[in-house]
Amino acid sequence: MTEPIIKFEKLNKWYGNNFHVLRDIDLDVAPGERIVICGPSGSGKSTLIRCINRLEEHQQGKLFVDGVEMTDDIRAIDEVRKKVGMVFQQFNLFPHLTVLENLTLSPMWVGKMPKKQAEEKAMQQLQRVRIAEQADKYPLQLSGGQQQRVAIARALCLTPKIMLFDEPTSALDPEMIKEVLDVMVELANQGITMLCVTHEMGFAKAVADRVIFMDEGQIVEQNNPHDFFNHPQNERSKDFLSKILGH
């Protein structure tokens, strides 16, 4: 077996002193693996993936990302953030910058790339998410689905090894979900490691290598999508699936 690209070892996290949000998380992610994380609201799914690029810090246990242990060491954090792209529920595009400037920001200021080269790279990524014609607009001039595709392109400009998606379609109008999912499916087929918090079970069935079900800060069940959806083992997963698939 190849060395995991992400490795959680007995990781624990509390918010404040009382709220135990992640409990004894053990998880190995293989390079190129596509994982969908689901579970009820407040179960710790978002917190789990936000630990990977240190938007959240953990208090106990260990977390390795591409061989680097995540600690307070700012250099380790910078190192990892260059390899991990993230897409948020609320897009979080920079409203005062044009689409193109949103994409070239990191290559130019973090990657020290010349402007022209950064713009070429940005245009390639915009073409990849099929939105190149909007390069000179401001984010708020675009629809939600378009904004989320720009956000994906922005993350791809880092040439990341790992992509994290935190409920990327939850803030979208139904008719825009498909355009974003299509882009994500294409990405998944290109061999990038993906961790995706989502309730889009169609997407999970189509691309996931593994589905992880979380509840109350624990990984309750994990399996390949076929078995997870058809033969859930745990009572809580059964209950959850019956609620989201039951209509």
């Binding site: 690029n53 953030r81 993230m86 979080n92 990191s106 973090v110």
Partner: peptide
């Protein structure tokens, strides 16, 4: 979210 997004871009 603006600060988080910028941080994940490595700034």
């Amino acid at each position: 979210g603006q600060i988080e997004a910028a941080a994940t871009l490595g700034l």
